[in-house]
């Protein structure tokens, strides 16, 4: 039973991280119908920023909780700036182009950012300091659920609630929903659609950066390539849940997390990805729009 619980909680942790990244994919898709393949790289840049800031702050001898907060904040700001700029440079000029063009531009951006970090930093794996402290009250269960995992799950849940409130009740959230439903009409009733798109990219990038810092802290090492794998997985989660749907992304991420975790635990860690992507294939065959997605009806 303990083993099952451990796998379940492990899957929950994985799923939480995937959810943070998948939200960026799904929100951007909802608003501009673009798969932002550079999103995984934003996550990786977040992790690198946090590592650099944390290393500097360690020299000054701050305590690890303070370092964690400052490093995360820095990662969020820096990644948001990247997300914002990528949209302005690579996607905005192509907004009225055929849908394939921004997609190719996104893949180009992804490759560019990976190689930029590779050149500017290093190709080696860098150790990431463990900044999340071990809580005393977690001691009895620490063999199946660590403090770091608890922080990841709780942070993700808080962020989800905040995001839901933001989108449901604030003006800019309403403007985002309106833009997703009908961009021209949104413009006509006075919504600055360019600004809404920028805000969407900033929010998506912030969430990805947060995910990047949390996972790097949990796994303990990063390199320039982590964004690719995480990006593909999060993208899978978003498609699983129905791309464009926010609750769908979270649901898809959790299902993916559990699938991987149980596959690793009961079959073999070699089969982790096999199960994850087999699930994707099955969903695409039987529910092409994803679990919570609405199938698009095209007028002919």
């Amino acid at each position: 039973m303990d083993y099952f619980l451990e796998l379940f909680l492990g899957g929950l942790t994985r799923g939480s991280i995937y959810a943070l990244i998948a939200l960026g994919y799904t929100m951007v898709y909802g608003i501009v119908q673009l798969i932002n393949f550079a999103h995984g790289e934003i996550y990786m840049i977040g992790a690198f920023t946090a590592l650099i800031v944390a290393s500097v702050l360690t020299i000054f001898g701050l305590n690890s909780a303070a370092i964690l907060v400052i490093a995360t904040a820095a990662a969020i700001v820096y990644s948001s700036a990247y997300g914002y700029t990528v949209e302005k440079i690579a996607y905005k000029p192509l907004r009225n182009a055929p849908r394939l063009s921004p997609l190719i531009s996104a893949i180009g951006m992804s490759i560019f950012l990976q190689n930029y970090v590779l050149l500017a930093q290093t190709s080696d794996f860098l150790p990431f300091p463990r900044l999340i402290p071990e809580f005393a009250f977690m001691e009895p269960v620490s063999h199946i659920f660590s403090s770091a995992e608890l922080v990841i799950v709780v942070t993700t849940m808080v962020v989800m609630v905040l995001l839901t409130v933001f989108i449901k009740f604030t003006n800019i959230g309403k403007a985002m929903r309106a833009t997703a439903q009908d961009k021209t009409m949104a413009l006509l009733i006075g919504i600055d659609v360019d600004r809404v798109i920028s805000v969407t990219f900033i929010i998506g990038s912030s969430l990805a950066a947060l995910g990047g810092v949390l996972i790097a802290n949990h796994i303990g090492q990063i390199n320039f390539y982590i964004g690719f794998i995480a990006g593909i997985k999060a993208f899978t989660a978003a498609v699983l849940g129905g791309i464009g749907s926010i609750p769908g992304a979270v649901l898809g991420a959790l299902i993916l997390g559990w699938t991987e975790s149980f596959a690793t635990g009961y079959v073999s860690s070699d089969y982790e990805d096999v199960f994850a992507f087999a699930l994707l294939v099955l969903i695409l065959i039987f529910r092409p729009a994803g679990l919570l997605g609405k199938s698009e009806t095209k007028k002919v």
């Binding site: 403007a175 929903r177 439903q181 009409m185 009733i189 006075g190 919504i191």
Partner: peptide, 23 residues
């Protein structure tokens, strides 16, 4: 008709107010 179908009636009207809000 080009309403925002997945929003409530009040929300649809509130969206129209958007450009007049300073927030």
């Amino acid at each position: 008709i080009r309403l925002f179908p997945n929003m409530t009636v009040l929300e649809n009207v509130m969206i129209g107010k958007h450009c007049r809000l300073s927030a």
